[in-house]
Simulated assay, not measured.
Amino acid sequence: MKITPLDIRQKRFDTAVRGFSRREVEAYLELLAGEFEEVVKENIALKEELRRAQLRIEQYQERERTLQETMVTAQRISEDLKSAAKKEAEIIIADAEHQAEKIVHGAHQKLVQVVEDINELKRQRTQFESQVRSVVEAHRKLLETFSGPSFADRDYARVEDNVAYLSQKKATHGE
């Protein structure tokens, strides 16, 4: 059974011969009711404060759960980002290596082509020099042929000899 301050104020005692002083009992009951009323009010206030504190604690606990979930999510996202960045870096490196290989291969092909071109030019130079030597040699021989008595000069000398012979013969026979 709960006792309220009103219960204390309304409590009446039976009177007896030589009992307590009614005024003192009523004054004490009034004092007790006032004190009890203060205790009840304080109890109600403390219960309300406790309820508010429990609400705040629940809110803080909910915030803490939310923060923990956020931290776990952020950590997972961070790990995912790191993993994605690592994969992207690996892809970039692989692509760069592939491009470098293509560049080196292209440079090697160009080097091979340049060497082949140089060798072809050397071959053409040798062939050209040989052809020029052949032409020069042919012209030299031709010049040698023209520098000595030519065929026409020899034939002309023979013709002159024949004409002189015939003229002499004619002069010796026909005169």
Results as ranks from 00 to 15, higher is better:
residue 3 I to C: 04
residue 3 I to A: 02
residue 4 T to A: 08
residue 4 T to N: 09
residue 4 T to L: 03
residue 5 P to D: 01
residue 6 L to G: 05
residue 6 L to M: 10
residue 9 R to F: 07
residue 11 K to N: 14
residue 11 K to D: 09
residue 12 R to S: 03
residue 13 F to E: 08
residue 14 D to M: 08
residue 16 A to Q: 14
residue 17 V to P: 05
residue 17 V to L: 12
residue 20 F to L: 09
residue 21 S to H: 12
residue 24 E to A: 09
residue 24 E to R: 08
residue 26 E to P: 01
residue 26 E to C: 07
residue 29 L to W: 00
residue 30 E to S: 10
residue 32 L to G: 01
residue 33 A to P: 01
residue 34 G to K: 05
residue 37 E to C: 02
residue 37 E to W: 00
residue 38 E to R: 04
residue 39 V to F: 04
residue 39 V to M: 02
residue 39 V to K: 01
residue 40 V to I: 01
residue 40 V to K: 00
residue 42 E to N: 06
residue 43 N to A: 12
residue 47 K to A: 11
residue 47 K to H: 08
residue 48 E to M: 02
residue 48 E to Y: 04
residue 49 E to P: 00
residue 52 R to Y: 02
residue 53 A to Q: 08
residue 54 Q to D: 09
residue 55 L to P: 00
residue 56 R to K: 12
residue 56 R to M: 02
residue 61 Q to Y: 00
residue 61 Q to P: 00
residue 64 E to K: 10
residue 64 E to R: 10
residue 67 L to G: 01
residue 69 E to M: 09
residue 71 M to F: 15
residue 76 R to V: 10
residue 77 I to G: 06
residue 83 S to F: 08
residue 83 S to R: 12
residue 83 S to T: 05
residue 83 S to N: 12
residue 83 S to W: 06
residue 85 A to D: 03
residue 87 K to N: 03
residue 90 E to T: 01
residue 91 I to Y: 09
residue 91 I to C: 02
residue 93 I to C: 05
residue 94 A to V: 06
residue 94 A to Q: 13
residue 94 A to N: 13
residue 96 A to D: 14
residue 98 H to I: 09
residue 103 I to M: 13
residue 103 I to Q: 14
residue 104 V to L: 15
residue 105 H to N: 15
residue 106 G to E: 12
residue 107 A to F: 06
residue 107 A to I: 11
residue 107 A to V: 07
residue 110 K to W: 03
residue 115 V to N: 12
residue 116 E to V: 09
residue 117 D to P: 01
residue 117 D to K: 14
residue 118 I to E: 11
residue 120 E to T: 14
residue 121 L to P: 00
residue 123 R to I: 01
residue 125 R to D: 08
residue 125 R to C: 02
residue 128 F to T: 12
residue 129 E to R: 10
residue 129 E to L: 07
residue 129 E to A: 07
residue 130 S to D: 07
residue 131 Q to L: 05
residue 133 R to N: 02
residue 134 S to I: 07
residue 136 V to R: 01
residue 136 V to S: 10
residue 139 H to E: 04
residue 144 E to N: 10
residue 145 T to Q: 11
residue 146 F to H: 09
residue 146 F to S: 04
residue 146 F to V: 07
residue 147 S to V: 11
residue 149 P to L: 08
residue 149 P to D: 06
residue 150 S to W: 04
residue 154 R to A: 07
residue 154 R to Y: 03
residue 155 D to N: 15
residue 157 A to L: 14
residue 158 R to T: 15
residue 160 E to N: 15
residue 162 N to L: 15
residue 163 V to E: 05
residue 164 A to I: 07
residue 166 L to Y: 13
residue 166 L to I: 13
residue 167 S to I: 08
residue 168 Q to G: 12
residue 171 A to K: 12
residue 171 A to H: 05
residue 172 T to E: 14
residue 172 T to S: 15
residue 175 E to W: 06
